[in-house]
Design a protein around this nucleic acid. Sequence first.
RNA 1: GCCCACGUAGCUCAGUCGGUAGAGCACAUCCUUGGUAAGGAUGAGGUCACCGGUUCAAAUCCGGUCGUGGGCUCCA
Length: 642
Amino acid sequence: MENKKIKLRFPDGQEKEYPAGITGDELVKEIGARLAKEAIAVKINDQILELNRPITEDGDIRFLTFADREGREVFWHSSAHLMAQAIKRIFPRAKLGIGPPIEDGFYYDIELDRPITPEDFHRIEAEMARIVEADYPIVRKEWPREKAIEFFKNHHEDLKIELINDFPDEEVISAYSQGEFTDLCRGPHVPSTGRLGKHFKLLSVAGAYWRGDEKNKMLQRIYGTNYPKKKMLEEHLHRIEEAKKRDHRKLGRRLDLFSIQESIGNGLILWHPKGARIRRVMEQFWIEEHYQHGYELVYTPHVARLDLWERSGHTGFYRENMFPPMKMEEVEYQLKPMNCPFHITIYKNQLRSYRDLPIRLAEFGTVYRYERSGVLHGLMRVRGFTQDDAHIFCTPEQLTDEIVQVLDLVLYILQTFGFHEYDIFLSTRPEKFVGSLENWEAATAALEKALEVKQLAYTVDPGEGVFYGPKIDIKIKDVLGRSWQCSTVQVDFNLPERFDMEYIGADGKRHRPIMVHRALFGSLERFLGVLIEHYAGAFPVWLAPVQVIVLPITDRHHDYAQEIHNRLRGAGVRVELDRRNEKVGFKIREAEVQKIPYMLIVGDKEMDSQTVSVRHKGEGDVGRLKVEEFEARILHEIQLKK
RNA sequence: GCCCACGUAGCUCAGUCGGUAGAGCACAUCCUUGGUAAGGAUGAGGUCACCGGUUCAAAUCCGGUCGUGGGCUCCA
């Protein structure tokens, strides 16, 4: 073994020979001090190893740092252990669940007879700092199952034993020790606790079901994060602050866009005039585009007889999401959770020919769904919301092309609203499904084909489709890089079947159409919520609820200000006039706080020259313009949807 | 629904050990007519979320209900 050599290939293509059993640490030190300092783990072929583990095989080698996603995962995973060790020191009774890395940090689930509160965080953090200071080596152990079980039994780690018992027989059981602390873990980890540095912070504590199952007991999940550099931690905390500042619930109140009130009911939205303005602009734009793209708009009621929902299958598979039915004159009615049965019924109202297809029916359909109280969240998750819903009924041959057209429309609309980055998912057949395998395959192929035609990169989400068909979900990314599920395109061959939908084909025979459900905004409530956070409430001119505010300097300028106001309003601009008895500085401040894009200041000079002094939000004074010049300028911006 | 925390004026928040409430902003009235992010004075505004309990006495302690927040599960 000692004389054996291994051949390693580095990312730059260089190959070198080393004695077998050399550790990552030894190797990286040869490469350079800087990389040695930053290295977190080493990746050989597809396996990630600790830096102190001997390397025994040939292959591609790469050192992982915090810049690599996998490197961060190791770093945060070790940080979770660090926190667990500190918690065990302070609360020896605590039992450990699992503690994985997540998107930007880590958590650990623990069972403890006393709630952990944010006040405990400082104590835990201080203990973590001591453990880092001690720089314990992190040592991997591989144990036979019995030994592992015995060890965790002795340490009263019942949850760990439960995990071990569920491991497949052939699984190698490994544990990692640092100082007095040992945790069941697959690894890998950083070589010692000192490598984790001191730029960590515990962020929050929340309940979480053991193994994610609500039938199990609830554990306490403590979230934290850790960065190799102080500046990175600060940036992360700053991002959290920034997100708080953009919170649509706060901005919604401050800008008087909407409210949710106890007296109305939770999860139900009141759109105030300014929020309604934005929503109306969205709707008008959407309606125009849909007529342009061959859709027909319809209106359908908010309730329907329960029978309809029985036929559609909703009372079976969707009941737990529906409001309870109500009875009137011996007939039961149901508040609608979806719009599809109505659109189908319109389709079925006459015999359709293949020549009529595709038929595209669209509607702002307001639906009501029962959501458990704990999941409600501002505009993002509500009980009554309006979908920009449409159903396309087409022949199998038309399917791909219809989906391509939907994708075109989705991307165009999202881009218009300022979203240029997306994550696209193709969700395939779930375990519980209806319909034939051929149908599923054909539908999935049509979705794939459409994505190929559009050259869109996507991720397959296996088994995440709806029970009636596969779907494409488009998640938009906002300015802070957070992603939001809005648009969805779903193929459905279940409902056409259930409703016995037909069209007469060229062969004179009856055929079954395919149905596509699609929503671009998804829900107007959620989309507007995302929009508020994306723009931090400072909407572009075309969307701003108030586009212009006229600010007269004294009373004697009121008539002139009124004239400008009337003129702009006549031209279709959303304009307000601030006639209050306040200094102009005060009025400007208020307009800035309200995030109004344009302020027109009018005093003697403007009155004499028939001009306005234009101040743009954020930019400050941009000089004087003739009234007609300003009007042309803002109308142009609105037209360009800027 | 579950775990934890929270609920005081329209908004943001003080309120110590249990002794029936306070600020700033907003609002109203008056003064001020001021040129690019807060002029001044005065005033009004509260069943301390709701229901019950303990107590001579509850915003404060206890229980329940409703709501909100952070999560879990689920989702547009």
